[in-house]
Simulated scan of single mutants.
Amino acid sequence: MEQLHVFGTITELRLRGADPDAAQAALAEVSAQLNQRHREWHAWEPSDVTRINAAFAAGQAVEAPESVVALVERAKPLSEATEGLFDPAVGGLVAAWGFHTSTFPIQSPAPTADQLRAWREQRPRITGVRVDGHRLSADNPRTQLDFGAMAEGVASEMVLATLRRHGVRDALVNMGGDVTALVGDGGRPWRVELRDPFGGRLGGVELRDGEALFSTGNYNRFRQSQAGARLGHILDPRTAQPARGAASVVVLHPDPVLADVAASALFVAGPSGFERLARRLRLGCAMMLTDENELLVTTAMAARATLLRDPVPLGPPLDLGEGCAGR
């Protein structure tokens, strides 16, 4: 097993049956790639993204590395598909809530009602970021990029491609709890645990070749309200407040980028918006546990996940297709 510290979390790589020389070469390249992306994408430590955000705040166009340009271009259609529930232009709001930190729980004051109202009235959007070759500019000086809701998906996609290129066919990549898998011909699936937002282990899922299991919840990165409620790091751009209603969301999909984005967007959508957004994104395998311990799940996800306890069903499973890619 190899461990790397990138994007403020631990990345673990487990390989099975790989040629030792090929495995060593693959791990060295993956390490270099992830460290490079860390220097380019980090939302608050000095990086290309923080340099770009400073230029946006000054109303200036700025040169950007190819990887950041690619993130912007991939983010735009995903933001539109989620009706803006996923939007990496909200970095300023994330900072205002104190979530640009690796130390939790947060002790700094929450933004005031006036600050949040001003942000809502002048809300920046990723669709307002213009790409001109390798130069980026924003139509709103409040635009601050934060790719936290898609960076691990894009990085996981890159890691799998690198492993395959080196002939590694059986591997598990765990980026802070978000997992992607390679399973060779005739190989056994990888067993992955599901975290229970109320403590302990909720259950498990077996991952097949090329599948990604991404989750988000209010159990790790959070702050406390004055009343003692736990406020998670996933923010609702419509209200400028931490998203309410969900305790955790899990998405299983062959596209790690979509799985990453969808998990965050479903968390923002909450229980009332779960079915509509899951259908809109054509997700076959998705699950939400609400903060009232109620369960929303698709039929394909229910067939794949083994739960160790029985949350209260919030209606019957949703038939969104037999496979995790949906229909």
Rank of each mutant, 00 (worst) to 15 (best):
E2V: 04
L4I: 15
L4F: 12
H5G: 00
V6T: 06
V6R: 08
F7H: 00
I10C: 00
T11R: 02
T11C: 11
E12S: 12
R14M: 11
L15G: 07
R16F: 03
A18R: 09
A18K: 10
A25V: 12
A26N: 11
A28E: 15
A28C: 02
N35Q: 14
Q36A: 10
Q36P: 00
E40K: 06
H42G: 08
W44K: 05
T50G: 03
R51L: 09
A58V: 10
Q60G: 07
E63Y: 04
P65N: 07
P77T: 07
L78T: 07
E80L: 13
E80H: 05
T82E: 03
T82S: 10
F86A: 03
P88N: 12
P88S: 12
V90Y: 00
G91T: 11
L93H: 02
W97M: 07
G98S: 12
G98M: 14
S102F: 10
S102G: 10
F104I: 08
P105W: 14
Q107N: 12
A110Y: 11
A113I: 00
A113W: 03
Q115N: 05
R117K: 09
T127D: 03
G128S: 11
R130S: 11
D132V: 12
H134R: 15
R135Q: 15
L145R: 08
L145D: 03
D146Q: 12
E152C: 06
A155M: 05
E157G: 01
M158D: 15
L160D: 03
R165P: 01
H166D: 14
V168G: 08
V168H: 10
R169T: 15
R169A: 14
D170S: 13
D170L: 07
A171D: 12
N174V: 06
V183H: 09
G184Y: 13
G186P: 08
P189R: 14
W190E: 07
R191G: 03
V192H: 01
R195T: 15
R195G: 01
F198S: 07
G199Y: 15
G200K: 13
G204W: 15
D209V: 12
A212Y: 00
G217E: 01
G217R: 09
Y219V: 07
Y219T: 06
G228Q: 11
A229S: 12
L231N: 11
H233I: 13
I234D: 01
L235C: 02
L235F: 05
L235R: 08
R238G: 02
R238K: 02
T239S: 10
T239A: 00
A243Q: 03
A247W: 09
S248Y: 06
S248M: 13
S248F: 01
V251N: 04
L252F: 04
L252M: 02
P254L: 09
V257H: 02
L258G: 00
A259C: 08
A259G: 01
V261R: 03
A262Q: 06
A263F: 02
A263R: 08
S264D: 14
L266E: 06
F267N: 09
P271R: 15
G273D: 04
G273E: 06
L277Q: 08
R280E: 09
L289N: 05
E294Y: 05
V297M: 05
T298A: 04
T298S: 06
A300E: 00
A302R: 14
A303I: 01
A303Y: 01
L308C: 04
R309C: 08
R309I: 09
R309L: 13
V312T: 14
L314G: 04
L318R: 08
D319V: 11
D319A: 14
D319L: 10
L320F: 02
C324T: 09
A325M: 01
R327Q: 09
